[in-house]
Design a binder for these strands. Sequence first.
DNA 1: CGCCACCTTGACTCAGGTCAACTATTGTGG
DNA 2: CCACAATAGTTGACCTGAGTCAAGGTGGCG
Lengths: 214, 214
Amino acid sequence: MTVDPSPGIASIAIHAKFGASEASYLKESRIFREGEPAHHIYQVIRGAVRSYRVRSCGRRQILAFHLPDDIFGLEFGPNYRFTTDAVVDTTVRLVKRHSLEYVAKTDLRVTSDLRSRLAKELTEAEAHLLSLGQRTALERVVAFLLEMDKRMAPTGTIGLPMSRRDIGDYLGLQLETVSRALSDLRDQGVLRFSETSRRQIVLQNRERLLELSI
Amino acid sequence: MTVDPSPGIASIAIHAKFGASEASYLKESRIFREGEPAHHIYQVIRGAVRSYRVRSCGRRQILAFHLPDDIFGLEFGPNYRFTTDAVVDTTVRLVKRHSLEYVAKTDLRVTSDLRSRLAKELTEAEAHLLSLGQRTALERVVAFLLEMDKRMAPTGTIGLPMSRRDIGDYLGLQLETVSRALSDLRDQGVLRFSETSRRQIVLQNRERLLELSI
DNA sequence: CGCCACCTTGACTCAGGTCAACTATTGTGG
DNA sequence: CCACAATAGTTGACCTGAGTCAAGGTGGCG
């Protein structure tokens, strides 16, 4: 399944005229909660967002991180399926759902774009599922770094917006395990932490990283 | 997200006139392979089907089991995303993809039904993901039993068509772990195995099973 | 009736979780 | 701008749940 995201973003951007606005959220603040009526569709402009569910025992599973240009909060049922909040200070564009649905009725490009986005979400969920079902802790962290590297500007440095705990809750691991995996990769010479922050990761041997993801 | 499956099945059944046929597959035989051109959409009539991917290291992740009335092989990209085979002797109905797509162009009910099915697949993948990320072995087996019970005729007995290994590959566990979890539940008095087969599971305390799934 | 695949159970190992101590970084108020 | 508190991350020691390996059962099928 190859879905080029560009035309979709373009069409949502164009039709955003019909009632788009912007909103900013402080780090760690709530955007919407699971179960609330899904009145808006969002697109990240700056920052990062996490979508998650919390089990009754208190454990949290992050389903996805949303980075600039990503769409989130797109629902086909009446309510949001996840709780969503800003990982860092974040600005989003938001469109009223009914206005997007109105546009979709007349513009087939938008309809088909929405379907592509749904298909893309499904593909991503399946890849994530494979990771959780089959990979070791190290393999999961490696896959995560490769995913982030691919999604962010390819400067060779990955500026992770999220904490070790966030990464753990995405990968089904404890934060200590994530930290150990990263230290391990550093000791192997695969990466190093930048001087400024341990969330800035410099890839030093992408070949080796790719091997580890097999 | 509440998706009533009935109208969808109805519409696919109706439009099946446009070129549906039936096919039967022996137990353990291949239906299609990941990466092949997705020329058909299938619906289980009798039997059971598994969709899976195999990692290069040889480990297999089963993404879904398909039971009677379930649709599978519905793709939006050009190729199948999974390998699929019959778990037991299975009969399917199959429709040529291009004829279904032709119908979908003129009949909005079919279009909307296809979208609902995609949304349903996404919801299921997300539930599965939660299971793999957050649950213990026992909790996963409990969730699996409840899922199977819900999907099969509610007679109080679950006739599992698949082996312990299949269940393990679905839940991200080894077959021995699945077996131990089932023995544990039996020892707790939550279930018992039927006299005829260890794949026939009689629920004796559904309350307790539900508690364990929290 | 006997083979073979499936399942169960036991013994042991090990990856990752848990708990705890410590270091580094960020944020805050004087 | 500094002092200090709070937060984030690392590392070590130990524990445990699930994996691995192995030895029987058991039931279906030729």
